[in-house]
């Protein structure tokens, strides 16, 4: 017997993501899902950002990691609450893993929650976690053709951070061509060039972030 089903395969994840979102609404918490390839600078960016924000906003972090606690330890050294989510080998965070992590965090004291996704340029783009914004980082050592090769993450992100611009003199990376590719894939994406090493561009990033936070947090 043939039976019709017609269901979104990711429906279960969507349901949980919506529940997470409702919880974030209730708590008046702004949540940013930070994605990008391994080594692109996600943890470094969060460390710098926490230092810039922590006098004005109460910040917490969820760290997605396949197996280790290294990134959580780096974040914890900045004196903000951090919860490690080990994905047990999975290449992305999903709504359920984030929900699990939330249980270990006191949300009532927080205004901003950063979620560092697993280092991966493909899979995290597919799974909503209930976030307000998805942002992605790409560093100049990864090549300027990445928007064309991995379009999905560029398509789902509202902000694209181009990191490690201090290394531009040493690599073949055409910033204008990169931006053109990124906008071809997602015409609405905002792009900010930064260096987490020199601090260049970080004030623009913080400005973007605080305008987003202010819309959500009363």
């Amino acid at each position: 017997m043939e039976v019709r089903v017609v269901k979104d395969i990711l429906e279960a994840n969507e349901v949980i993501a919506r529940e997470n979102r409702r919880l974030f609404e209730q708590e008046g918490l702004y949540v940013l899902n930070l994605m990008g390839a391994p080594g692109t600078g996600k943890t470094t960016l969060l460390e710098r950002t926490i230092e810039l924000l922590k006098d004005r906003w109460r910040v917490g972090v969820l760290e997605g990691d396949i197996a280790t606690t290294r990134d959580s330890e780096r974040i914890a050294s900045h004196g903000v609450p951090v919860v490690q989510i080990n994905t047990g080998g999975a290449c992305h965070l999903d709504g359920n893993m984030v929900r699990g992590g939330l249980g270990a965090l006191d949300l009532r004291g927080l205004q901003v929650l950063f979620v560092e996704n697993v280092g991966n340029l493909v899979c995290p783009a597919e799974f909503n976690i209930g976030e307000d914004d998805k942002a992605m980082i790409l560093s100049v050592t990864e090549g300027d053709d990445k928007p064309l090769k991995y379009p999905l993450m560029f398509q789902v992100s509202s902000l694209l951070l181009l990191n490690k611009i201090d290394l531009l003199p040493y690599v073949d990376f055409d910033v204008e061509r990169f931006k053109e590719y990124a906008r071809r894939v997602n015409p609405q994406i905002e792009i900010i060039e930064v260096s987490c090493k020199t601090g260049q561009g970080l004030s623009d990033w913080v400005k973007w972030l605080e305008s987003r936070i202010a819309q959500k947090v009363k």
Binding site: V5, L10, A12, C91, V122, E126
Partner: peptide, 18 residues
């Protein structure tokens, strides 16, 4: 890459429908 997670979600729906 994340096809494992997709296959898992798919199998859950299949199980539930079965």
């Amino acid at each position: 890459m994340h096809e494992t997670a997709i296959a898992q979600s798919l199998l859950e729906i299949v199980k539930e429908q079965a």
